[in-house]
Design a protein around this nucleic acid. Structure first.
Length: 559
RNA sequence: UGGGGAGUCGCCAAGUGGUAAGGCACCGGUCUUUGGAGCCGGCAUUCGGUGGUUCGAAUCCACCCUCCCCAGCCA
């Protein structure tokens, strides 16, 4: 027996967590996922959720869900509800650790007064424009505001009157008194509070001043005794300010901020601003449009939470900018669905086939496995009759070299049924194929030939009698370029073929009764899920992802 | 041209001085009542570049190059 020393490949954040736990710096770990309720969560957030909740779970700590609701002009309760639903759906739970930055407004305000009394904050009465001018630039230092040296009493008085609503929006702001010469622009007396005469979705009209993210975030982390405050790279330059506040405010704990690279995926966009644009201007049907990279969209598309979690794990956590191949996401989705999705036969573009030697009016049923990958999934019966539908793509009158499917004179297997041989092609006046004639071999019942012959192809099929008409929505990537953000307006890269509606696909009768979000594999085609628009009278399916298709690839290459 | 980060296979990503893990993609083969899945194999003499230190460097030092972030009273 060799006891392998399992060298786990920890990401750099987990390494830090383990070291902090090992050294005793922290007794247990507390993380937080801090969304702003101003839009829906997307798969980039899923990476952060898996990281934060994942670490909490792995190291026996907990992860808070905290709404970063410091800006009343952009936030809505509806978004908060959607966010909670999505985090839960992904499989994580915050227990009773649900918080809001707005819950801390009073404490945050009191601390701001402390800062003023300590001479570390002041009320500035410059206009926004003037503040910008005084800030300097990347290469020039800033200049101090003429209001920078007001007395603590004067500042306190003004700040209290700001709170009391005595001034209009923009009249004053509270600023930290740090260093206008700092090479780090974020340290040039950052704004801590601004006046906003606007109702907040949780605090109503109680406040006329609202804290900025840079002020509220570190202090909220301290209040919640967060140990590891994990955020994305763009906040790296804000860390000195984060640390400044933790040092200069009498907070009950000393959290630390760590930054990792956000997730990007090709052929889509991930910024909330752009996703909002797609929704508001109706380029998609909503935040949960199955083409959207939102959690809600992926759910409606048919992705499983497990697939998304596996994806987040394979993607890794590091500090280098990255763009993940959407192929990896699709792989994770197929991998999970292959295990769990019951199989069913459905024909998207029906081509009738009449089995000439099969008695008119005769019917029989075949037993077929629900999931060859899962012996416990059992079997079901599918009806067979004289007229069948097969996929139009499964027949070619003049088949090229590598086309193994049905063609005149060729024999193929109908999955779980019989071998059939194409004996004729019926066309309309326009020369379009409207029907196939064929004969079946009664000896191949069930799909095996006693003489051992093996057709090169097995086709899916549906008996015309009893077939159920369904709408099927075929999705493709939303954008037709890898990086929609580069090269002008991202909207110009929208894929006009991202949605194709198949109005009347033929499904085997067993599909009746399927409910929204049920997932299936339509054999040889892909994974499909019942859409929210579906009704018992008219089933609607979304294609989650296709199955890999070697023939499609060969065909594509020869083009 | 200030400050903060990052550069290892097409895309991710391990590696922390001892002679380049793994995944996706791709390419072969095998198997197959899904051209699916599975299984087997291939896929970086080289780590942004150039010098240097060392018996030995992706790992240490120096210089250079490229990319990303910061000038919201957004987060």
């Amino acid at each position: 027996m060799t006891a392998e020393a399992p060298t786990r490949n920890l990401d750099f954040i987990r390494e830090i967590v383990e070291e902090d736990l090992r050294s005793g710096k922290y007794k247990s770990v507390v993380t937080r996922f801090p969304p702003e309720p101003n839009g829906y969560l997307h798969i980039g957030h899923a990476k952060s959720i898996c990281l934060n909740f994942g670490i909490a779970n792995e190291y026996g700590g907990h992860c808070n869900l905290r709404f970063d609701d410091t800006n009343p002009t952009k936030e809505e309760a509806e978004y908060a509800e959607a966010i909670k639903r999505d985090v839960n759906w992904l499989g994580f739970s915050w227990g009773d650790h649900l918080y809001h930055a707005s819950d801390y407004f009073e404490q945050l305000y009191l601390w701001a007064e402390d800062l003023i009394r300590d001479g570390k904050a002041y009320v500035d009465s410059l206009t926004a424009e003037e503040i910008r001018e005084h800030r300097g630039s990347l290469t020039e230092p800033g200049r101090e505001s003429p209001y920078r040296n007001r007395t603590a009493d004067e500042n306190l008085d003004l700040f209290r009157r700001m709170r009391a609503g005595e001034f209009p929006d923009g009249a004053h702001v509270l600023r930290a008194k740090i260093d206008m010469q700092s090479p780090n622009i974020n340290m040039r007396d950052p704004v801590l509070y601004r006046i906003r005469h606007e109702d907040h979705h949780r605090t109503g009209d109680r406040w006329d001043i609202y804290p900025m993210y840079d002020y509220a975030h570190p202090l909220s982390d301290a209040i919640e005794r967060i140990t590891h405050s994990i955020c994305t790279l763009e906040f790296e330059a804000h860390r000195p300010l984060y640390d400044w506040l933790i040092e200069n405010v009498r907070v009950p704990a000393t959290p630390h901020q760590y930054e990792f690279a956000r997730l990007n995926i090709n052929y889509t966009v991930m910024s909330k601003r752009k996703l909002l644009r797609l929704v508001e201007d109706h380029y998609v049907s909503g935040w949960d449009d199955p083409r959207m990279p939102t959690i809600a969209g992926l759910r409606r598309r048919g992705c499983t939470p497990a697939a998304i979690r596996n994806f987040a794990e394979r993607v890794g956590v590091a500090k280098r900018e990255n763009v993940i191949d959407v192929d990896l996401l699709e792989f994770c989705v197929r991998e999970d669905l292959n295990r769990v999705a019951p199989r069913v036969m459905g024909v998207l573009r029906p081509l009738p086939v009449v089995i000439e030697n099969y008695p008119e009016g005769q019917r029989e049923e075949f037993e077929t496995p629900n999931n060859p990958e899962d012996a416990t999934a059992g079997t079901r019966k599918v009806p067979f009759s004289r007229v069948l539908y097969i996929e139009r793509d499964d027949f070619m009158e003049e088949p090229p070299k590598k086309f193994f499917r049905l063609a005149p004179g060729r024999e193929v297997r109908l999955r779980s049924a019989y071998f059939i041989t194409c004996t004729g092609v019926v066309k309309d006046e326009g020369g379009n194929i409207v029907e196939l004639r064929a004969t079946y071999d009664p000896a191949t019942r069930g799909g095996d030939a006693p003489d051992g012959r093996r057709p090169k192809a097995t086709l899916h099929w549906v008996s015309a009698q009893g077939a159920i008409d369904c709408e099927v929505r075929l999705y493709d990537r939303l954008f037709n370029v890898e990086d929609p953000e580069s090269g002008g307006d991202f909207l110009t890269h929208l894929n006009p073929q991202s949605l194709e509606i198949v109005p009347a696909a033929k499904l085997e009768p067993g599909i009746r009764g399927a409910s929204p979000l049920d997932r299936f594999q339509f054999e040889r085609l892909g994974y499909f899920t019942v859409d929210l628009d579906s009704t018992p009278e008219k089933l609607v399916f979304n294609r989650t992802v296709t199955l890999k298709d070697t023939w499609a690839k060969v065909k594509g290459e020869s083009k």
